[in-house]
Design a protein around this nucleic acid. Structure first.
Lengths: 206, 206
DNA sequence: GGTAGAATGTGAACAGTGTTTACAGAGTTA
DNA sequence: TAACTCTGTAAACACTGTTCACATTCTACC
């Protein structure tokens, strides 16, 4: 069993236990027992527990990045924005523990850890560019880029956080979780067709 | 020293240590040492550590509720919505550790703990009602109540979360944190005056 | 083949955690 | 004085992450 396979074995065991018992109830000893090794053995493969969790994070981020890889092929920026948000929401609902790990808890290591400034940073640049295009193509109304980025970022992350922790479903029981982001995005951006209706409505009134 | 004063002493020491060292780096032993008591003493006043933290949460929620107490006096629902969001954002920026404790981490006890279904639940009902009024007075465009509530909730919580964890300031360095919610809310709702401008702009084009 | 050296796994220990328990003393009541 | 409650504590238990000296095995080279 070479080094890399052993790392894999540990990570898989850890992942399984984390998913089963939650991130706070899994100790090094439990992971070690799961694969029938002594706790000390794990320290030949990971500097410490934080390092092990960081590896899981990087894998999760990698997988999440792959879910988004097709975004670049979507020409229409608004469609791209829609799809990007939908992916976030789906991920938060399907793997709430991992959404928590990647985007909610232990945030410092998200930005400061030198190991992976690459992926998330590039994603954010892409997101920013998509919003920029949406503004230029008139999909989101007249607004500064900064404000639009902040709004859409906060909305997606807010929805995903509330969904991952079950609050959205609990406090708004009747909500259509499958189309929530579509509806929210429509509400925020008021796409062209709606504006047209609004304009017509206003003219009818007067 | 009667019972209630001793509780106060413990809670104050805990609060101070939590603020100084972060919630994960404060042990019962450290709190006990701070007030020169044995660790076991604290268990005469709190069932366990979770119970102690829950008490701090309830106090934080109480204080947060007081910050919002004047909202009921604001007649204009849109103005009320603005002010409510502003309070959230201010709290998240001023006391990030506590925003984290109250609204981000350990969420289960937020909804499930029978001890305080009252306050937050009532706040949510009030929020819902405010959004309802905003729709009826035409401040937020034509949208279902559920979608509007979800959007505004997610946006405020998203902004506050990103602000409390420092991401908003780090990733959008040029942003005006003091007016961010105002700007975002304007963007989302596109108030009447903006719609008018938009309408005029469209007419000029054609 | 033999031997040095690296790689791998482990038991034992250390310091820390939350929590319980048996006990001691002080205060109050009858 | 006697009984009883209240309050505080030392010691212990079962955990936690982590380290270290010690074996064992595997690899490479003369």
């Amino acid at each position: 069993m070479e080094h890399e396979r052993m790392r894999r074995l540990i990570l898989d065991a850890a992942k399984e236990l984390f998913a089963k018992d939650g991130f706070d109830n899994v100790s090094i000893r439990k992971i070690a027992a799961r694969i029938k090794y002594s706790p000390a053995a794990l320290y030949r493969y990971f500097k410490n527990k934080e390092d092990l969790i960081l590896s899981l994070k990087m894998e999760g981020m990698q997988k999440f990045g792959e879910m988004q890889s097709h975004l670049g092929q979507i020409k229409d920026p608004f469609q791209r924005l829609r799809e990007g948000g939908r992916i976030y929401l789906d991920y938060a609902r399907k793997e709430p523990e991992y959404y928590d790990l990647l985007f909610i808890k232990a945030v410092p290591s998200f930005c400061s850890s030198e190991k992976w400034v690459g992926k998330p940073h590039q994603n954010f640049i892409n997101f920013r560019e998509t919003v920029h295009e949406c503004i230029e193509t008139g999909h989101v109304g007249d607004v500064s880029l900064e404000t639009a980025v902040a709004t859409l970022w906060a909305t997606v992350h807010g929805l995903a956080s509330l969904a991952a922790t079950g609050r959205l479903q609990t406090c708004l029981p009747g909500i259509d979780m499958d189309n929530i982001f579509e509806n929210v995005l429509d509400f925020i951006t008021i796409p062209q067709i709606e504006r047209e209706k609004m304009r017509k409505g206003k003219q009818d009134e007067s």
